[in-house]
């Protein structure tokens, strides 16, 4: 099997043309970028505004959790059956699946901004939209990025499944390979999409560290037991990151 896999990878035909590996990787990244971008444009502002006004917060959390139970395959198939083949129906399904983590991240980030900092901003005369954009959103960046990472990985995985309803991308190798029982092709496609996911995750992680504002960027020191070094100022400014620290959720 390993020999046949190597054969599959080293076949020159695999590396050119519209069904070649580079073309499929680009297609896959293209679908992912398109769906995540559309979802972010919808979900981030809505999540941030709800986080600021605190109105409808419970609904956001409920909807986000409820949508997690949606079977990706079923949603894809349903959208294609109702709207027809082509790029749009599967993309809409991917957008729908990317919205909950983005919405939850933006909401939790903004709602979790330090109330002291928000009060202080209000006290020095900042208007509501300034408070949202200059105080709450910056402190929400880590959680927003967490949502973005989760949404992106979810979309990469679901775009693979979308090959079943006619989308291109790396899932083609798995779906087409299965239909003719070409196992090296299936395995090759699975390997590429796994590596792609891990690379994208690493890139987003590094990106996240680079753009995280304020003290979180400095808080790289770790105590021997693996917990972050205490930094009250950072804790106060980034209490938005509470969900990753269960001890604070508990209280």
């Amino acid at each position: 099997m390993l020999g046949r896999l190597v054969e599959w990878f080293t076949d020159p035909a695999q590396w050119s043309g519209s069904a070649g590996i580079p073309a499929r990787v680009l297609e896959h990244l293209g679908y992912t970028l398109l769906a995540v971008a559309i979802a972010a444009v919808i979900a981030l502002p809505v999540g941030a505004v709800i986080g600021h006004t605190r109105r409808g917060g419970l609904a956001v959390v409920g909807v986000a959790n409820g949508l997690r139970a949606l079977p990706e395959l079923g949603v894809l198939v349903l959208f294609v059956l109702l709207l027809g083949l082509g790029l749009l129906p599967p993309t809409l399904a991917l957008v729908l699946l990317a919205i909950p983590p983005l919405l939850a991240g933006a909401y939790a980030g903004v709602a979790g901004a330090d109330p002291g900092a928000v009060d202080a901003a209000r006290g020095i005369g900042m208007r509501e939209h300034q408070i949202l954009l200059q105080v709450e959103v910056p402190s929400a960046v880590p959680l927003m990025l967490g949502g973005l990472r989760f949404a992106t990985l979810q979309v990469i995985a679901t775009a693979t499944i979308a090959a079943y309803v006619g989308l291109g991308g790396l899932g083609r190798y798995i779906i087409d390979g299965f239909s003719v029982r070409d196992f090296p092709q299936m395995l090759g496609g699975a390997l590429i999409v796994a590596v792609l996911s891990i690379v994208v995750e690493l890139v987003l992680q590094v990106l996240g560290r680079l753009v995280t504002p304020g003290p979180d960027r400095l808080r790289l020191g770790r105590r021997p037991d693996g917990t972050p070094t205490p930094n009250p100022a950072a804790d106060a400014l980034t209490s938005a990151s509470a969900p990753s620290h269960p001890e604070r959720v508990d209280r």
Partner: peptide, 24 residues
């Protein structure tokens, strides 16, 4: 665990028979 969780489900389902020799 983070890396394993990152691998798309359809890919993982395809890996297992190869690694363990279970029927596809």
């Amino acid at each position: 665990s983070g890396a394993l969780y990152t691998i798309p489900s359809l890919a993982l389902i395809v890996f297992i028979p190869v690694v363990l020799g279970t029927p596809i």
